[in-house]
Nucleic acid binder design. Structure first.
Length: 727
DNA sequence: GACCTGCTGCGGTCTG
C-alpha cells in the first residue's frame, strides 16, 4: 500500500481492506494526496466504473472523521444529474460510511418525506441531491441554508461533462455560488467526469475565478483497443421482394449481437421502436427467447428498470435499442459491442457511448456503425448524391480517432435561466435589491456576460404589466409579482429545462409510457410502442390518457424533436472526406462504393472549385463549409432578402422565392458589410422555459449569443463570392 | 434534423 493509504482515516482504511483491494488505483492515490494536503478544487476524470466516486470520497470522508466540524450542517454534498445515479451512489457511500457512523441522505423527488425530515432535523454526514432539489431548498427554505450547509467542506459534482454548457449546468453553478454566499466562505469543489475534451475549459467552469488552481487528475492509458466497422446499406431498391435496408440492418444486428449484452443507439425514439420491433420479430421467427428491448425516455419507468436490470445481469444476454438514455448514468456493466445506426450529432456523444464497451481488462471496445443511404435516380437530391449521412458518420469516426471532441461554448447569455435565478434569489430571501442580485448572479455567479445595462433590461421585462413576474416596493426592494408568486410556488419551477405536454399510454390498466400531444390519433389506429404492436381504443383528452390493446401490426408514433447543433470542425472534416482519396480500412465494400459515388458527385458538381453552384430555375446550392450556427445565420440573412432556404450539413439549397435581387448581388452586398436584419421574418425565438417573459429585443440578443453568429457573415459571404459554376 | 434530465407541501385514505 502506498502512503496515500496511510493518510486515510482508520474506518476508511478498514473499508478498503474489507474490499480486498491490493492497492488504491492511481487516480485514487493522487486524489488522496490533493484532498488531504490542501484546499484545492479538483477534477477527477476517468471512464465509468473507473473508481472516481471512491477517489473523491475516501479522502473527503477521512477529513470529516479526522476533524469533525463544530458547526451544524451536512459535511459533504454530492450533486448528481439523475435520480437513479443518486440512489446508486447513496448505496455505495452507505457501505463506506457504515463503519464510520456517518449518515448518508439521498434527496430527490422519489425520496420519502420522512428521510428528508430526518436530514433537516439533524443535518450532518453526506447529502446526495439533484440540482432541482437543491433549488427547491433555496426557494422553500432559503433562511435555513446557512444552518443546513454551515459545516459543508466540499461539494462533489458528478458527470461534470454532461452539464458543462447546458441551462441546467448554469443553474447548478449559480446554486454553488449562492451556497458559498449563504455560508460566507468558499467551499471546495470536486468535479467527477468522463474524459473531457478540454480540461482547462472544464476548470474554468468549476471555479471561474481561480481556474489555474484547479488540480486535474486524469486516468492515464488503459484505453481499450478499438475494433471498428462501418457498414453501408442502400434503401429504396427497385426489387420489391428484396429485404429493405431496415430489415438488412436488423438481420445483421440479430446475427452478431445475439447471445451477449449490447447497446444499439438508433438516433431517435421512432427508430428505436422500429428496430426493436424488427429484432423482436426475428427472435419470434427463430423461436428464440426475447433479448432485444427498446429503451427511451417516453417508455414507462417500470419497463426501463426492467431493461437496465437485465443489462446488469450477467446471465441474461440483453441488447437495448436506445436513445441517449443509456449514454450516461448508472453502471450497467460492460457491454460487448456498441452499435450506432445513422450518424450521431456529436463526437462527444459517440465517445461517451463507446465508453460503455471494452471496459474489462483485455477486452476490446467494439463500435459497429451502420449507414443507410437512398438508391439514386434522376430525381435524387444533392443531399443523397453527396451521401451526407455516411460522410458525417465517417467524419465523426475520424475525429474520434484523432481524440478530438466538441468544447463547451462559454459565450451564451442564458437569459431564460437568468430570469429563473432572479425569481429564485428573490424567493430565497423574500426580496432583494437590484444591485445585490447583479452581484450574486452576474459578478460572482455564472452570468458573467450580462452587463448592468442588459441586466436592468431583463428586470424591466420581468416587471412589465404583461409579465408581472416582479415588482418594486417603495424602498426599492424587488419582490415577486402576482405571476412570479404563482410560478415560484408551483413545483414545476425547480427545473430550468422545458418539457412538452404528453398523453399517457395505457394497456389493460398498465402504463406503457407517454406520447407527445401533437400525435393525431383516432380509435382504431395502429401503433408500435415499447417494442410491441397496439391498436388505439379510447382517447381521453381531458385526462390526457390513451387506452390501447395488443394488435398484429402498427406504425411508430412521432416524437418530434429539436434541431441539432453540429460543430464547425465536424463539417470541415466532412469536406476533407469528400475531397480526399483515403479509403478507411474500417469501411465495408458497400460503404466504400457509396463513398466513391459521393466523391464523384462532389467533383462533378465542381464543389472543390466553387462554393456556389447554379442549378437553373433560380436555384443554387451553397457550400458553406460551416457548422449549424454559421450556416443558420447565412440562411436567416438570405431568408430576410426573400430567398427560400433549405438547410443541410454544411450546405444550403437556395431558391429565388420572392427575392428581388440575384443571389450574387445579395452575397456581394453582405460581403461589403451590409448586414441585413436577420430577424426580418420574425422567426420563432422561444426555445427555453422562461423565454416567453422576455422582450423581442432580449430574445434576439439571447439567440445571437448562442444560436446565431452575425460576426461571421461578412467573411462567409466574401468566401462564397468566388466564381459560380453551371451544370 | 435529436436526445436527455427534474419536482413541494398538503390533505386524504389506508394499515398495523
Amino acid at each position: 500500500m502506498s502512503s496515500a493509504f496511510d493518510k486515510l482515516a482508520r474506518p476508511v482504511q478498514k473499508w478498503v481492506r474489507s474490499k480486498g483491494w491490493r492497492e488504491l488505483r492511481q487516480i485514487q492515490a493522487d486524489s488522496v494526496h490533493v484532498v488531504m494536503d490542501g484546499n484545492a478544487d479538483l477534477i477527477v476524470s476517468a471512464s465509468t466504473a473507473g473508481g472516481k466516486t471512491e477517489a473523491a470520497f475516501l479522502p473527503l470522508i477521512s477529513q470529516v472523521l479526522d476533524a469533525p466540524s463544530e458547526r451544524d450542517g451536512f459535511d459533504l454534498v454530492y450533486i448528481g444529474p439523475l435520480k437513479a445515479l443518486i440512489t446508486d451512489q447513496a448505496m455505495r457511500l452507505e457501505d463506506i460510511c457504515r463503519e464510520a457512523g456517518l449518515p448518508v441522505y439521498p434527496w430527490h423527488g422519489d425520496v420519502s418525506g420522512s428521510v428528508k425530515a430526518r436530514a433537516l432535523k439533524a443535518p450532518r454526514g453526506i447529502l446526495l441531491i439533484t440540482p432541482e432539489s437543491l433549488e427547491a431548498l433555496f426557494v422553500r427554505r432559503g433562511l435555513e441554508i446557512p444552518r443546513l450547509f454551515g459545516a459543508t467542506r466540499a461539494v462533489v459534482i458528478d458527470e461534470l461533462h454532461s452539464v458543462l454548457d447546458s441551462e441546467r449546468g448554469v443553474q447548478m453553478r449559480s446554486l454553488l455560488t449562492r451556497l458559498e454566499i449563504a455560508v460566507k466562505r468558499p467551499i471546495r469543489r470536486v468535479g467527477l467526469s468522463a474524459t473531457l475534451g478540454d480540461m482547462n475549459m472544464a476548470s474554468a467552469y468549476l471555479r471561474p475565478d481561480n481556474a489555474e488552481a484547479v488540480q486535474l487528475i486524469e486516468a492515464k492509458g488503459g484505453e481499450a483497443e478499438l475494433l471498428l466497422q462501418l457498414r453501408g446499406y442502400v434503401s429504396g431498391g427497385e426489387d420489391e421482394d428484396a429485404p429493405s435496408a431496415t430489415d438488412a440492418v436488423s438481420e445483421h444486428l440479430f446475427r452478431h449481437l445475439r447471445g451477449s449484452d449490447n447497446l444499439v443507439f438508433a438516433g431517435a425514439r421512432q427508430w428505436v421502436e422500429i428496430y426493436a420491433d424488427r429484432l423482436r420479430n426475428l427472435c419470434e421467427k427463430a423461436h428464440l427467447p426475447q433479448e432485444f428491448y427498446p429503451h427511451h425516455a417516453s417508455l414507462a419507468r417500470e419497463h426501463r428498470d426492467f431493461v437496465e436490470k437485465r443489462l446488469k445481469d450477467a446471465n441474461l444476454p440483453t441488447t437495448a435499442v436506445c436513445t441517449s438514455t443509456l449514454e450516461l448514468g448508472i453502471d450497467i456493466g460492460d457491454v460487448a459491442c456498441v452499435a450506432q445506426v445513422g450518424a450521431p450529432f456529436s463526437v462527444a456523444a459517440l465517445r461517451q457511448r463507446l465508453g460503455r464497451s471494452g471496459r474489462r481488462e483485455g477486452q476490446p471496445a467494439i463500435l459497429r456503425q451502420y449507414s443507410v443511404e437512398a438508391r439514386l435516380d434522376s430525381e435524387s437530391s444533392f443531399v443523397d448524391q453527396l451521401r451526407l449521412g455516411l460522410i458525417r458518420a465517417i467524419a465523426m469516426i475520424e475525429l474520434l480517432l484523432e481524440g478530438w471532441c466538441e468544447p463547451p461554448r462559454p459565450e451564451a447569455l442564458h437569459l431564460s435561466t437568468l430570469v429563473h435565478q432572479i425569481l429564485s434569489v428573490i424567493a430565497e430571501r423574500g426580496g432583494a435589491q437590484a444591485n445585490r442580485l447583479y452581484r450574486v448572479l452576474c459578478q460572482e455567479g455564472p452570468f458573467r456576460r450580462v452587463d448592468t445595462g442588459l441586466f436592468l433590461d431583463v428586470l424591466r421585462a420581468m416587471g412589465r404589466p404583461e409579465a408581472e413576474l416582479i415588482e418594486q416596493s417603495s424602498d426599492g426592494l424587488l419582490l415577486l409579482g402576482a405571476a412570479g408568486e404563482r410560478i415560484v410556488e408551483h413545483y414545476s419551477f425547480y427545473a430550468v429545462f422545458k418539457t412538452p405536454e404528453e398523453f399517457r399510454l395505457v394497456a389493460d390498466g398498465k402504463e406503457l409510457g407517454t406520447l407527445p400531444i401533437d400525435n393525431i390519433l383516432t380509435p382504431g389506429m395502429l401503433l408500435i410502442f415499447s417494442g410491441r404492436r397496439w391498436v388505439v381504443q379510447e382517447i381521453h383528452d381531458l385526462e390526457k390518457v390513451i387506452l390501447v390493446k395488443p394488435a398484429k401490426a402498427g406504425v411508430p408514433p412521432l416524437f418530434g424533436g429539436d434541431p441539432g447543433m453540429i460543430h464547425d470542425r465536424v463539417i470541415e472534416k466532412m469536406f476533407d472526406v469528400l475531397e480526399g482519396e483515403v479509403e478507411p480500412s474500417y469501411m465495408d465494400k458497400i460503404s466504400l462504393r457509396l463513398l466513391s459515388e459521393a466523391r464523384a458527385n462532389f467533383e462533378r458538381w465542381r464543389f472543390a472549385e466553387t462554393p456556389v453552384v447554379e442549378m437553373g430555375d433560380g436555384a443554387w446550392i451553397l457550400a458553406t463549409r460551416c457548422g449549424t450556427v454559421k450556416t443558420t445565420t447565412l440562411a436567416m440573412a438570405l431568408g430576410a432578402e426573400g430567398f427560400q432556404i433549405t438547410q443541410h450539413d454544411g450546405f444550403l439549397l437556395v431558391e429565388s422565392g420572392e427575392a428581388e435581387q440575384t443571389l450574387d448581388q445579395v452575397l456581394s452586398e453582405m460581403a461589403n458589410a451590409a448586414t441585413p436584419d436577420l430577424f426580418a421574418h420574425s422567426p420563432n425565438l422561444i426555445f427555453e422555459k422562461y423565454h416567453s417573459y422576455l422582450t423581442p429585443d432580449l430574445l434576439k440578443l439571447d439567440a445571437l449569443s448562442a444560436r446565431v453568429d452575425r460576426s461571421c457573415l461578412q467573411s462567409l459571404c466574401s468566401d462564397l463570392r468566388a466564381q459560380k459554376a453551371t451544370i
